[in-house]
């Protein structure tokens, strides 16, 4: 097995009484890795800790062998890492070419190299003639691509991307995901993609880490996580679904109700028995109008992981009368 790109041990970060990161261990493998979590789960805090922009309350981390908490190592970390921040970040009054070349020079590139490199990465993110215009007039999509370009300016070994598709329209989002996918899968870059958009991570990453309330609640290869949980059956019924759910729970099956009234049955292995489902429906006195199988998606993995830890009253909560199954109500 290849060595971890990022290694974290007992990481705790407190803001006053709030524990943003609640003491977890994590080893991030090489390649594109998604860092998933609901808002406020500690994703951005973790990225800033990895860059040494924040000091941990407890614990330690290494990024490509350097410790961001050590003063000298911190600068080394920033030399081998490219960071794309979440918010609008620009150097005042500059054009894209000036911004990228200036930041490349600050990282240590020679003047000529910095200018050549700036043009290369701006070509790559497809900022054409706009690169000579002041950034103030850029659209959100252009600003996001520019932020990616500046992160790539020194050809870092690891890219930390914080919500790269934030605020983008579908076309811009597709462009950004194409770039991230190319960097991770074709160019072999190590990427830690921080997002709350599951589709983005599912499309671009091979490995996923789910954070919730400052703890790692799930991690592993996307293929393993989605396959290991068995099959998912989508069922629509006529009649009282509560009785059907009770019947399913009694049979030891996990169920999830969607906002649209669709019922999902989590089958424990990859080969669901449809006849058994029909049998249980008959016993519950309901008629199945539609039954189809869906492979467990990252969304299900995420909901399960986050739902298991979600506090009462949040978007996911255990609510089954029998107490045997976990009923997750998804937001519409």
């Amino acid at each position: 097995m290849s060595e971890s790109v990022i290694s974290i041990r007992n990481m705790v970060k407190c803001y006053g009484a709030v524990r943003a990161l609640d003491g977890f261990d994590l080893d991030v493998p090489p390649g594109p890795v998604g860092l998933l979590g609901p808002n406020g789960s500690g994703k951005t805090t973790l990225l800033k800790l990895l860059l040494g922009l924040l000091a941990p309350t407890e614990g330690e981390a290494t990024v490509l062998g350097y410790s961001p908490t050590q003063r000298l190592d911190r600068l080394s970390v920033r030399t081998v890492v490219g960071y794309m921040p979440e918010g609008d970040c620009v150097l005042p009054g500059m054009s894209a070419i000036e911004l990228v070349s200036t930041l490349a020079r600050i990282t240590g590139l020679r003047n000529e190299d910095a200018m050549t490199r700036a043009h290369e990465v701006l070509d790559y993110v497809q900022l054409d003639e706009e690169r000579y215009r002041p950034i103030d007039g850029y659209s959100t999509g252009m600003k996001q691509r520019l932020k990616l370009a500046q992160a790539l300016a020194h050809d870092p070994q690891l890219l930390l991307l914080d919500e790269p598709t934030n605020g983008l329209d579908p076309k811009g989002r597709r462009q950004m995901l194409d770039l991230v996918e190319d960097l991770g899968r074709t160019q072999g870059k190590n990427i830690l993609l921080c997002s709350h958009l599951l589709q983005d991570v599912e499309r671009t990453c091979d490995h996923v880490v789910v954070l919730n309330e400052g703890r790692v609640v799930e991690q592993g290869a996307v293929s393993a996580l989605t396959a290991a949980k068995g099959a998912l059956l989508l069922v629509e019924v006529e009649g009282d679904p509560a009785r059907f759910i009770k019947q399913l729970c009694a049979a030891g099956l996990e169920t999830i109700t969607g906002g649209d009234g669709e019922l999902r049955i989590q089958w424990p292995d990859a080969t669901p028995d449809a006849d058994r489902v029909f049998e249980l429906a008959q016993q519950a006195g309901v008629v199945i109008t539609q039954l189809r199988q869906q492979r467990s998606s990252l969304e299900d993995v995420f909901l399960r992981a986050v739902g298991a830890k979600a506090p009462a009253g949040s978007e996911s909560e255990p609510s089954d009368s029998t107490g045997n199954s976990t009923l997750l109500k998804r937001q519409p």
Partner: peptide, 22 residues
Amino acid sequence: AGLIAEDRRLGANLLYFSRPIS
């Protein structure tokens, strides 16, 4: 006057300090 103030307003500090500068 604007050198530090505008950096903070526009988030440029994050770009600077994600580079190897002290």
